[in-house]
Every structure is written in structure tokens, then in C-alpha cells.
Amino acid sequence: MGDPVRGESMVYALVSDLAAVRAFVAARAVALGLEPARADLLTLAVNELATNTLQYTREGGQVQLWTDSGDLVCDVVDQGPVRAFGGGMPPPDAVRGRGLAIVEMVCDHVAAFASNRGTVVRMRLGLA
């Protein structure tokens, strides 16, 4: 998919950028009409994905937010592999693997795909 950049975006490249990413997502989501409690959940999901970007890729990533058809849409774009969703929550004694499950739990819809910009994880949350 050759998706263009939409809405407002923020680039991140360092672990020290994560606080700014969280602040950006929380503020933009509320400004675009998402309820504050749901904006907190989206912020958690984006933090999980951005942390994965910084742990598993050499480059940073980009977060974008916009509205479409009654939803808030948020893309996290990086140069890593397309993530596999649908694995569910790992067992309580697992050391890793909860991040993608958390993303799926807090968003209404999640899709991952390759685009000309890199790998995209697109999250949608209803505004109503």
C-alpha cells in the first residue's frame, strides 16, 4: 500500500523521545475528539509500538494521527518487519510478548501492512 502521510505527525529516534511521543499522541487524540480515557489507551498502545521500534530496528519511526469516517486513526511507521497480530496475551510467566496483545486489546481495530513508507501499524478508535 502506498499510503501518503496524513494528519499531524511526529518522528522519534531515541528512547528519550518516548515521553514526547506519549505527550503528542495524548494531546492530538483529545484535540481530534477522542475521549480522554480512550486517548490514554491509545497513548499506551503507541508507546508499546514505539518502544518495539526502538528495540528491534536501527532507525526510529513516525506517529501520525487523523480522523476518518468517525474514527481516530493512528499510524506507527517504522522499518521493521510487518508485525503479526492475533496471538493473544502470553502466559503470566512469559518475559516478553505483551505489547502487541495490549495494542489489540485497547484499540477497536488494528492492521499491519507494508507500504512505500515502511511497515505501518494502523489503529482505529471510534470517536462516538
Rank of each mutant, 00 (worst) to 15 (best):
M1T: 12
G2C: 09
D3W: 09
P4K: 06
P4L: 13
V5N: 07
R6T: 11
G7N: 06
G7L: 12
M10S: 06
V11G: 07
Y12F: 15
A13N: 04
A13L: 03
L14F: 08
V15F: 10
V15H: 06
D17G: 04
D17E: 04
L18H: 02
A19V: 10
V21C: 07
R22P: 03
R22V: 06
R22H: 06
A23D: 13
A23S: 13
A23H: 07
A23V: 11
A23N: 07
F24V: 09
V25H: 03
A27M: 13
A27D: 15
R28E: 15
R28Y: 11
V30S: 14
A31D: 15
A31W: 11
L32D: 12
G33M: 12
L34I: 11
E35G: 14
E35L: 12
A37D: 15
A37C: 07
R38M: 10
R38T: 08
A39C: 05
D40I: 03
L42V: 11
T43K: 09
V46I: 09
V46P: 05
N47A: 13
N47Q: 09
E48I: 08
L49V: 08
T51H: 07
N52Q: 12
T53Y: 09
L54R: 04
L54C: 00
Q55M: 13
Q55T: 06
Q55E: 09
T57S: 01
E59R: 10
G60P: 01
G60F: 00
G61K: 04
G61T: 05
Q62H: 05
Q64P: 00
Q64V: 00
L65H: 05
L65V: 09
L65T: 07
L65K: 05
D68M: 08
S69Q: 15
G70K: 10
L72F: 09
C74Y: 08
D75Q: 00
D75L: 03
V76C: 06
V77D: 10
V77C: 00
D78L: 00
D78A: 02
Q79D: 12
G80K: 07
G80F: 07
P81M: 05
P81V: 02
V82K: 12
V82L: 05
R83F: 08
R83K: 13
R83V: 04
R83I: 02
A84E: 15
A84T: 14
A84C: 03
G87T: 01
G87C: 00
P90L: 09
P90M: 11
P91E: 15
P91Q: 15
P91I: 13
P92Q: 15
V95D: 14
R96P: 07
R96S: 12
R96D: 14
G97V: 11
G97D: 06
R98E: 08
R98Y: 15
L100G: 08
L100T: 03
A101D: 03
V103Y: 02
E104G: 00
M105N: 08
M105W: 01
M105L: 12
V106P: 01
C107M: 05
D108T: 02
D108K: 02
H109F: 06
V110P: 08
A111N: 02
A111I: 04
S115T: 11
N116Y: 08
N116C: 09
G118C: 06
T119F: 03
T119I: 02
V120L: 01
V120M: 00
V120Q: 00
R122I: 00
R122S: 03
R124C: 04
R124H: 00
R124D: 03
L127P: 06
L127C: 01
A128L: 11
